[in-house]
Design a binder for these strands. Structure first.
Lengths: 216, 216
DNA sequence: GAATTAATTGAACGTTCGTTTTATTAGTAG
DNA sequence: CTACTAATAAAACGAACGTTCAATTAATTC
């Protein structure tokens, strides 16, 4: 009925986050109770409130860190080249790999937005918009230089993002396809969708990089 | 404190369905209470149980009828032609128009699957699979006849469906784009994505049909 | 080894939930 | 006009919810 042997704040908080992501992804935020989450962690419900003041704070923290991670990942993966085809290939590769590796967290960030307060929703959407803006810039550059054939930049960006993010709905690691195969196929679908003019230097190479990077 | 003047079972049931779709789409199934739904209809919570034995029965009914409607719509829109390009164009057009016209119901059917019992979930997924199978058949036929250039039939089908259904996330009627413009753009993105060999007879025509049909 | 701090328990709070029961009135059929 | 049925209201049920609080023990500091 008090502190337990070996208990450690940092470990418990990490366990809470991890369990929360997987429980919310499986049951939904509203359907998951704090008692259920506590049981998963092996602790009483009251103990959760030492780490997160409310249930919504917990949700918001998970979402914010997911989005920050996505922006950071793109910042790292962003190529030096100014070739639109190279940049688009890098964007697709980064997006798919990141989301497959974080299937549950992505599910949470995409499905539970309506459980956030207005203010916090705005914060998350701001990050999402910034991320999507990067893709639109790539598409616009490519279209202006004649590398892409695109009817509507905004519409194409949304179509691509939904197509790519949709991977997490059906992808299961260790099944028919590897991450590298999925990435490679989505890369060629993307390039065809935007009507990319392919040449040996700028297009074939990133595709191969994508395969190699993940196959390691 | 009893039956009210002008009360009518059929009207009430219809009002309940309509209010439920919009409330669940906005708040989520778990977050919507039966009292909230009743208030929206202008009735007491107990009255709902005359039409739907449980909250889950209500959800399942909405979902089942949505899926039945989708299958029926495709059955009607399915072209006589055996040309894969014509059939794919019809599939895309039907899918987008159907989903845009039923944005809220689609949201419910896609987001609230986890609130169904195992048995009912299986029923809904069976219908969904049947619908997706139609697309895979079109893609396979087109690929075998050399009309399409496709790496992986199943993966391409999922990518297309997620891309198309994603329209409901950002589309708002009466804003920048009309349904016809959206359909037309998605049609050309789809054709490029599957690497369709376009000829004047089989491809250009359906695009025009799609525009005209909705613009009326 | 005593004092302090960190981590957790167990019990309780008020609220809301889905659902059931009973009573009551509006409409309908003979 | 009376009997019957359809449609609802009002009240209540137990269960579960997010959260708070006081007590208690483990670890750390001096």
């Amino acid at each position: 009925m008090a502190r337990t042997t070996g208990s450690d704040g940092e470990k418990t908080e990490a366990a809470v986050r991890e369990a929360a992501v997987s429980l919310i992804a499986r049951l939904g935020y509203e359907a998951m109770s704090m008692r259920q989450l506590a049981a998963e962690v092996g602790v009483q419900a009251a103990a959760l409130y030492r780490y997160f003041p409310t249930k919504e704070d917990l949700l918001f923290t998970l979402m914010r860190e997911h989005m920050e991670g996505l922006l950071k990942a793109w910042d790292t993966a962003r190529p030096a080249s100014d070739d639109a085809v190279v940049r688009l290939a890098a964007y697709v590769e980064n997006h798919i790999v990141f989301h497959i590796e974080r299937r549950h967290a992505t599910h949470v960030s995409n499905m539970e937005l309506r459980s956030l307060s207005h203010e916090r929703l705005t914060q998350i959407l701001k990050m999402r918009t910034a991320y999507e803006k990067e893709l639109r810039a790539i598409l616009r550059d490519g279209a202006e230089l004649g590398r892409f054939q695109i009817d509507d930049i905004g519409l194409t960006a949304m179509a691509l993002i939904q197509m790519m993010t949709g991977v997490i709905v059906w992808f299961r690691p260790g099944e028919r396809l590897s991450v590298a195969e999925v990435t490679s196929t989505y890369l060629s679908m993307t390039m065809r969708l935007v009507g990319a003019k392919i040449d040996a230097y700028s297009a074939a190479r990133p595709v191969e990089r994508a395969k190699d990077a993940v196959a390691l």
